[in-house]
Computed example of a mutant assay.
Amino acid sequence: MEIQLLPLAEKKPRIEDESQLAFGKQFTDRMFVMEYDAGKGWHSPRIQPYGPFAIDPAAMVFHYSQEIFEGLKAFRRPDGAIALFRPRDNIRRFNRSATRMCMPEVDEDFFLQALKQLVKLERDWVPRSEGTSLYIRPTMIGVEAALGVRPSSKYLCYIILSPVGAYYKGGLSPVKIWISDEYVRVSPGGTGEAKTGGNYAASLRAAMEATEKGFDQVLWLDAVHRKYVEEVGSMNICFLYDGKLVTSPLKGTILDGITRRSILTLVRELGVEVEERALSVDEILDGAESGRLTEAFGTGTAVVVSPVGTVTYRDRTVAMGGGQAGELTLKLYETLTGIQCGKIPDPHGWVEIL
């Protein structure tokens, strides 16, 4: 792998006041890039100065949306060391997305080493304040210049880095969720379990309407019955129902979240039973009003754990646990972020120190 020199003149100014860090607004000095050609495979891996690409207007990604991405984080630990959280799981999911979108897989070991090398070179960009991190975005796009509905024969794969603060400015303040019964995110047999841009593009209209109505996120219903909840716009979602943690099953229509996996492991260790089944809208609304549903929270790499305060469906609004972050929600947030940042021991081998 080639590591290109970074001219001093190209170094970017960093935000000194880390409380001003936004999500995904500033990017580091370097990025990793490699290319793929049919018959040749992946080639020309390099770490180069961050900058724009020159891509043909006929590149197939623009016309047929062959694109996948991932999201993970690097954390600054109390001793100054840099840690990654379950990076190999993200790379494996990246390859599963690639297979679903008819794109070439990357070599897992090489890609992980390239990612680590990039973060090491950019370690000064990893923020130090509590709740901050360095967000890592691996991406692959089809770049063959051709029109015609088929897989591209050429691909560009790259990794960019962004120092970030808390995903939500309110921190752990409970969010307001709107359940959409007009739009659906994906259908069975579609690309719901792939982390591909088209899934997120399909969510924008409902997300915009939710914002206009004063809500923070959209909760999607299944595309078949329009009654069972699946996931929130940028998160998997969990409910504490009759003392069990209930979350939608992995059946191809929701993302197999790395944070979701971690949370389910921690929940079981706390002695709470986990039930993977789809809750209906009526179960959620009636359960919240009767007290059977006592907590709800979203999970995701960017947000970690986000408590749900209220859920609105049509003209009915219910509060989760009095509209405050629940005891289990807070415990899971503190435990998972503690493991990620090195404040709590990691018995699972999830953390990799650079």
Rank of each mutant, 00 (worst) to 15 (best):
I3E: 12
L5M: 10
L5W: 05
E10S: 12
E10M: 15
R14K: 14
K25M: 14
K25E: 15
Q26D: 15
F27E: 02
D29N: 14
R30F: 01
R30N: 06
M31R: 12
V33I: 06
E35T: 12
E35H: 13
G39A: 14
W42L: 06
W42M: 07
H43F: 09
F53T: 12
A54C: 13
I55H: 11
P57I: 10
F62D: 03
Y64I: 02
Q66P: 11
K73G: 01
A74I: 01
P78T: 00
P78D: 00
A83K: 02
L84E: 10
F85N: 08
F85I: 10
R86M: 08
R88P: 06
F94C: 02
R96S: 10
S97F: 02
T99C: 10
M101P: 10
C102N: 12
P104H: 14
E108M: 12
D109C: 09
L115N: 11
L118P: 02
V119L: 08
K120C: 01
W125S: 04
R128Y: 11
R128P: 02
T132R: 11
S133C: 03
S133K: 04
P138R: 09
P138Y: 01
P138W: 05
P138D: 05
I141K: 03
I141G: 08
V149W: 15
R150K: 15
R150F: 07
I159T: 00
P163E: 03
P163K: 07
P163R: 07
A166V: 01
K169S: 09
G170W: 01
Y183K: 12
V186C: 11
V186F: 02
G189E: 04
T191V: 12
K195Q: 02
G197F: 02
G197I: 06
G197A: 08
Y200N: 04
A201I: 03
M208Q: 15
E209K: 05
A210D: 01
G214M: 07
F215S: 00
F215A: 00
V224S: 10
H225Y: 13
R226M: 09
Y228F: 14
E230T: 15
V232M: 13
G233F: 05
S234Y: 06
N236D: 11
I237T: 03
I237V: 15
F239T: 10
L240A: 14
D242H: 04
V246P: 04
T247Q: 05
L250V: 09
I254S: 09
L255S: 04
G257F: 06
R260E: 00
R260Q: 11
R261V: 04
S262N: 01
L270M: 10
V272N: 11
E276G: 08
R277I: 13
A278H: 10
L279S: 09
L279T: 05
V281P: 05
I284L: 08
L285M: 15
R292E: 00
R292D: 04
R292I: 07
L293C: 00
E295P: 05
G298E: 02
A302R: 03
P307F: 13
P307T: 04
P307W: 13
G309Y: 06
V311M: 11
T312Y: 12
T312R: 13
T317L: 14
V318I: 13
M320N: 07
G321T: 00
G323V: 12
A325H: 05
E327P: 14
T329P: 01
Y333N: 03
Y333R: 09
Y333P: 01
L336R: 02
Q340E: 07
G342Q: 08
P345E: 03
P347R: 04
W350T: 04
